[in-house]
Every structure is written in structure tokens, then in C-alpha cells.
């Protein structure tokens, strides 16, 4: 159902072991709140991304539950520690059952 959903994430390419890094994520999504009405006065049904997770090498960084009050194109910024080189996995879960996933590698020295 959801079209043109495009995840974007910003992760540093490298870091020192144990460093704190800042991660920014954005996904294009209309986040229809279920509160709006169309021209005929009918409620437009809710259609949002309801969960976002970030993991590094299988360990969780953050797990977010989203409600309709999150703005269009949900944006999150948070911090992670990276104990070793590896890969971040970012996952978004849509109300319609779609799952969007993107990964980013980071080399740790």
C-alpha cells in the first residue's frame, strides 16, 4: 500500500572501540493520523509506521513505539556505543504489514 517509502540513515563510517556515535534516521512516510477528514467529511483511516528498531550485530540499541502524533517522515536521532566492527540494522514496521529495512556498516579500530 504505502508507496515511495524510502529510509535514510546517517552513521559514521568508522569509530574507535567503545566510542559513542550519533545516528540519525529519516523515513519518508505520510503517517496518516486517523484524525483527518476528507472533503466529504469521512475520516481518513490511520496508516502509520508503528515501530522502529535499531540493532548492532544483533544487539538492540533502541526500540521505539510510534503513535499517530509522530510527524510525517518520522525522524529519530539517538546515540550508540560500538564495541567492534559490524553492521547496524534499522527496521521500520508499517500498519499495513510492510517492513522496511536498511543496513549500515561501520569499521571500529
Amino acid at each position: 500500500m504505502a508507496t515511495g517509502v524510502k529510509p535514510r540513515v546517517k552513521v559514521p563510517k568508522s569509530a574507535a572501540a567503545g566510542d559513542t556515535i550519533t545516528i540519525k534516521t529519516l523515513i519518508s512516510h505520510k503517517m496518516e493520523s486517523g484524525q483527518r477528514k476528507d472533503d466529504d467529511g469521512n475520516v481518513i483511516p490511520r496508516s502509520i509506521i508503528n515501530r522502529f528498531t535499531a540493532d548492532f550485530n544483533g544487539q538492540n540499541v533502541i526500540d521505539v513505539t510510534l503513535e499517530p502524533a509522530i510527524s510525517t517522515n518520522p525522524y529519530f536521532q539517538f546515540e550508540a556505543v560500538v564495541p567492534e566492527s559490524g553492521e547496524f540494522t534499522f527496521t521500520w514496521y508499517d500498519d499495513d504489514g510492510d517492513v522496511y529495512e536498511t543496513t549500515k556498516k561501520i569499521s571500529v579500530s
Binding site: 540499541v61 499517530p68 509522530i70 510527524s71 546515540e79
Partner: peptide
């Protein structure tokens, strides 16, 4: 109309218990 906005659960690799987002 619905007071809940979001819930952040921090995992073992979360560096600081902080987060930013944009809300309505």
C-alpha cells in the same frame, strides 16, 4: 486527541538514554 506520542526503549548498546524526534 490521543495523548500518547511515542515510547523509547533503550537497549544494551544505547550510549546515552536520550533521543530526538519530531511530533504533531
Amino acid at each position: 486527541p490521543l495523548p500518547a506520542v511515542a515510547t523509547f526503549t533503550f537497549g544494551p548498546l544505547s550510549a546515552s538514554r536520550s533521543a530526538s524526534t519530531r511530533i504533531r
